[in-house]
Design a protein around this nucleic acid. Structure first.
Lengths: 194, 194
DNA sequence: GTCTATATCTTGATAGAC
DNA sequence: GTCTATCAAGATATAGAC
């Protein structure tokens, strides 16, 4: 299977389309024909770029995780304070959600994990680990700086924070009018502040 | 469409099977044939009890919400302290999750909301509203009693709490080894404690 | 790289016998 | 209430022409 860094422009467009569909309908809710209609080529042409649905989703999640790595790096470059970084992190989710209430790709796929090809489920797990590690580091820094209370382990707070963000998107989607992830993040951060 | 309170034993078994399938695979991930194999009758017999998939899911969510209403009542009967009630609430999610990492029915369906029949999506929204209302009341009580900090609105904390619980199940499913909703709840409750 | 055509399977759903 | 038989539509996927 190809690596996402060496794929053609058309393959890129296919992943773009598939990603939007996954965020709105899930893995079991979209078909190659849906993708074909969006990018404007026929179904078998999609298969030429990604032989199996499993391949498409794997590369898609790899690219998504890679983009997230970039976001995290960008946040560290733009904000010095761990609290600002944690708020900026939530803003990434908010941006996704504000686009037609799209879910986090891995939030959706994580829920569907049991009906995912194993290779795809592995990629999803990697995404979560990457994010939890980064959040733990930021929260640890904040605790060291006395900005966040130290009565809970950084890892536990990281899990609670990411869970709340992913869950906020599910609630926001499932209800009509509800606050997005950014608002839930603000609530969370103000409760853990020292 | 029938009300869940007036359905036959076989219809009950069908809903049981469908609920497990939804919690593990989602709405788009299970078929009438899957249900048929579990309950031991043929696919058209399922249609006899629930003409359309939409009917089945609607009644299923109605029953689920009703059962939850019962849980809430039971919690209020068994615990006097709002903090104990909030912890007991999380235990309900933990119990669900501990059974093969099953998701909350409405957590899964909320994520899939866009590809749900509208009537089913409405029922899911009702479930969330019921839970947020109850949680807001409990958290409000806790704030009045001085057990929870009052720097955030009870409604905001309720949303954060429910989001964290739903998200914890998604993370727990998507990763291999992660804490369940009860652990995330403990973290949350200890951060908001006054 | 894209297409038409096709294979094969599964899906939700119906008709009608028992 | 349950069954067999069947349908039309949609799914993933492949073969082979252009």
């Amino acid at each position: 299977m190809k690596h996402f860094s060496e794929i053609s422009p058309m393959a890129e467009r296919i992943i773009d389309a598939a990603q939007g569909l996954i965020q709105q309908q899930g893995y079991n809710g979209f078909s190659y024909d849906d993708v074909a209609k969006i990018v404007g080529i026929k179904k078998p042409s999609i298969h030429h770029h990604f032989a199996k649905k499993e391949d498409l989703v794997c590369v898609l999640v790899q690219r998504y995780t890679h983009q997230f790595r970039g976001e995290l790096l960008s946040i560290e470059g733009q904000h010095a304070s761990p609290m600002d970084r944690l708020a900026a992190y939530a803003a990434v989710f908010e941006q996704t959600f504000n686009r037609d209430k799209r879910l986090c790709v891995c939030g959706m796929l994580g829920a569907e994990s049991d009906s995912l090809p194993e290779s795809a489920a592995d990629e999803v797990a990697l995404f979560f680990k990457l994010n939890l590690d980064w959040l733990s580091r930021m929260i640890g820094d904040a605790q060291t700086a006395g900005l966040i209370k130290s009565n809970c382990a950084a890892e536990s707070l990281a899990q609670a924070y990411l869970s709340a963000l992913e869950g906020a998107m599910v609630l926001g989607r499932g209800m009509r009018t509800v606050q997005g992830p950014a608002d839930i993040a603000q609530t969370f951060l103000s409760t853990v502040s020292a």
